[in-house]
C-alpha cells in the first residue's frame, strides 16, 4: 500500500528564494524602507538587491516610489496588501511544515 501524499500547504516559489525571503521579511517588519536600509538588512549587493526588488514589484508584492530628498534621488519600497498577505501565507505554511516535521521526528 502506497502512502497518500500529505495535505501540505502550498509554498510560494517567488518568496521561497532566500534573498527575496529576506527582502519580504524586512519589508513586512516596517511600513516602508529605502534601498540603503534594505541593503544593510539583507546583506545583498546593489545589483542583486535591485534585480530581486524588480521581480517582487512585477509580481505586485511591493510598490516602488521614486522621489527626491534634497537634490538626491530617493527610492522607497513597501509591501502591498497582496504582498503582505502572500508573505503571511508563506510564513504560516513554513511554520506548518516545521511543526509537522517536528512531530514526525519526535
Amino acid at each position: 500500500m502506497t502512502p497518500s501524499a500529505p495535505n501540505l500547504p502550498p509554498i510560494d516559489p517567488l518568496i521561497h528564494a532566500p534573498a527575496r525571503l529576506a527582502i519580504m521579511a524586512t519589508l513586512a517588519a516596517v511600513d516602508e524602507a529605502d534601498f540603503r536600509y534594505l541593503q544593510r538588512a539583507t546583506g545583498l549587493t546593489k545589483g542583486n538587491l535591485s534585480a530581486h526588488l524588480s521581480k517582487l514589484a512585477d509580481a505586485g508584492y511591493i510598490t516602488i516610489t521614486k522621489t527626491f530628498r534634497g537634490k538626491y534621488p530617493w527610492t522607497l519600497y513597501r509591501l502591498t496588501p497582496q504582498g503582505r498577505a502572500a508573505f503571511e501565507t508563506y510564513r504560516q505554511g513554513m511554520l506548518e511544515y516545521l511543526r509537522r516535521a517536528g512531530s514526525a521526528l519526535a
Binding site: P18, A22, A41, R91, L95
Partner: peptide
C-alpha cells in the same frame, strides 16, 4: 541577514528594525 528556515525571519526583521 540570517533567513534560516528553522527560525522565523519576521522576528529577526522586527528585531533588526528596532
Amino acid at each position: 541577514m540570517a533567513t534560516s528556515l528553522s527560525g522565523d525571519p519576521l522576528h529577526w526583521a522586527k528585531a533588526y528594525a528596532h
